[in-house]
């Protein structure tokens, strides 16, 4: 297996190179963030006097605590409700198999490829007429709707594979459909649900378009939208912008590193099932 060995080394080298390219932007952000505020450092150049205080400054300028709170509130509004609605519908279409399921499933599936830009204009006027502009609901409610195709699709794929004998035996014990769903099927769906939860969390947290169009106050936006506003305000100060960007992407990064296995699996499944 001498050939195999050389191949393995080429593989390693390639992998390391690829990782370097992946990490390069992060490194550049980090090094730039340490330069004196207001300066224009060139390239990747370690500052003579690293300004760690920039992170503190950016933390205050971006009002990180409030930003995190806002994003958490939005995620709490979107994810549990999307999971619930998606599971209910997925259960009905995949397991209860009521008449007309194919039609309604098709209606949902058609929304899978929808680019958000396609409906952002009417959504703006609709949200405005509901009096929700500049509230977190302006992001939460449309996102739940926009996540329905994927949520239903995902949960249906799970329920389609659940043996019906399970329900039959519970039925014999006298359980009604709701008990059947809540006591037997939801607990069994936990792996699928948690993967879906991770995906929805990520997509909500990083949602940009809805945030910048529907909410003007950065403190009521998602993290990603707030970063847009931060760039608008501090884009003239490169080191501060870099420090702020790093801070803003830290929460997802930390959560990713803690739950990385679930994340990777979820993302892989997510794209495969999709």
């Amino acid at each position: 297996m001498i050939v195999g060995r050389r191949e393995a080394w080429t593989g390693r080298l390639l992998l390391v190179l690829l990782m370097a390219v992946t990490l390069m932007p992060f490194l550049s952000l980090f090094v730039t963030a340490l330069h004196p505020s207001g300066s224009y450092p060139s390239g990747l150049e370690w500052p003579s006097d690293p300004q760690w205080g920039n992170f503190v400054k950016a933390f205050q300028a971006a009002r990180m605590i409030e930003l995190i709170k806002s994003s958490v509130l939005i995620v709490l509004g979107v994810v549990p409700l999307s999971l619930l609605l998606g599971t209910l519908a997925g259960f009905a279409i995949g397991h209860l198999r009521m008449a007309g399921r194919n039609l309604v499933f098709l209606v949902f599936v058609l929304g899978l490829t929808l680019p958000f830009e396609g409906i952002i204009t009417p959504l703006y006027y609709q949200v405005r007429d509901m009096g929700l502009l500049n509230t977190r609901w302006a992001i939460i409610l449309p996102l739940i709707g926009l996540f329905m195709p994927f949520g239903v699709f995902w949960m249906r794929a799970h329920f389609v594979n659940v043996p019906e004998a399970l329900s039959e035996s519970a039925r014999i014990d006298g359980a009604n459909v709701w008990q059947l769903f809540w006591r037997i099927h939801v607990p069994l769906a936990m792996p699928a649900l948690s993967s879906l939860a991770i995906l929805l969390f990520l997509w909500t947290w990083n949602q940009f378009l809805l945030a910048i169009v529907l909410v003007d106050d950065p403190l009521k936006r998602t993290m990603s939208g707030a970063l847009g506003a931060f760039q608008g305000q501090w884009g003239t100060d490169m080191p501060l912008l870099c420090a702020g960007s790093l801070l803003i992407l830290t929460p997802t990064l930390v959560i990713f590193l803690i739950f990385q296995r679930r994340f990777v699996t979820a993302l892989l499944q997510g794209s495969l099932k999709g």
Partner: peptide, 20 residues
């Protein structure tokens, strides 16, 4: 006080004045 760069304000002006 809310701050943005001028180009952003230009884009936002009608929308902000009408709805916020």
């Amino acid at each position: 006080i809310r701050e943005d760069q001028f180009a952003v304000i230009t884009q936002n002006a009608p929308r902000v004045l009408a709805d916020d």
